[in-house]
Nucleic acid binder design. Sequence first.
DNA 1: AGTGAAAAGTATAACCA
DNA 2: TGGTTATACTTTTCACT
Lengths: 156, 156
Amino acid sequence: MPDLDDLDLRILDLVQEDAEMPGEAIAGRVGLSASAVQRRLSRLKRDGVIEKVVALVEPRSIGRTVTVLVEVEIDNERRSALEAFQRWVVEAPEVQSCWYVTGDADYALLVSTRDLDSYNSFIERLMTEQPVVRKYKSLIALKTIKRGLKVATNPD
Amino acid sequence: MPDLDDLDLRILDLVQEDAEMPGEAIAGRVGLSASAVQRRLSRLKRDGVIEKVVALVEPRSIGRTVTVLVEVEIDNERRSALEAFQRWVVEAPEVQSCWYVTGDADYALLVSTRDLDSYNSFIERLMTEQPVVRKYKSLIALKTIKRGLKVATNPD
DNA sequence: AGTGAAAAGTATAACCA
DNA sequence: TGGTTATACTTTTCACT
């Protein structure tokens, strides 16, 4: 991942908001030709700066009403099972994101399920299949204020 | 947002993983013609099922090394300032996502910054500009296990 | 609603500055 | 590296089932 110049950053800023914008529209805004923009986009994808381009789906519209932030505490005497836990998380379709964190918890999971019943099923599966999880705490999202993974490109 | 059939769900499953897949490729997988797929995609966007299509950028590659889950506690005697707080959050480029949650905290924020220094600046701005925030707790992500906002389309 | 074919719009690649 | 042109591909529109 080599050095990105200011033009790359401005392009990234735009496509993180709308990846369907035609190269020519981007070109107009950043002051380049369409093909220069496309060349840069190809390079950004090849180098892994742009991981992928995805559609963001509104969860309610496909019947997923429940979003939960789950804080998970690990049994330190079973640390050897951590890799299996992480693989489980990566495979679980309910888990949107997961971080290993400092602080009170060990892992934080962002989970999306149909309803509270299926959230409960998810937690039961987690606790029975992954005994390395000692405790968990649920922060149930009552309202989504902002949803995205956009990374700021500004210098601050 | 009217009823989605099984074909819609299968299309959504694919474009949440890779929105650049040509209509014809999707068509082959779900058993439709390319134009039928395109018509469904247009409808899904028009109806807001697909909110938008965005590029996912790898934070490190643009110099953002710090990801933090911030739990925020609200001063209940200043509830009137909540709307201003939410607007602030929506505007703040460091905040990727934010939920109003049950449990110990009131809000949970997903924050991305250049380094710990700029995270500190962010927190100071938050605390001085939004006195409605009484307390906060930082869960610093030491490792990202899984990153995305994909919503499962399966029945579970 | 779906299919297939023509038309319009984009992206890709080759070439030159 | 950027711009321009030509080619290939994709999406959009339309006539028809």
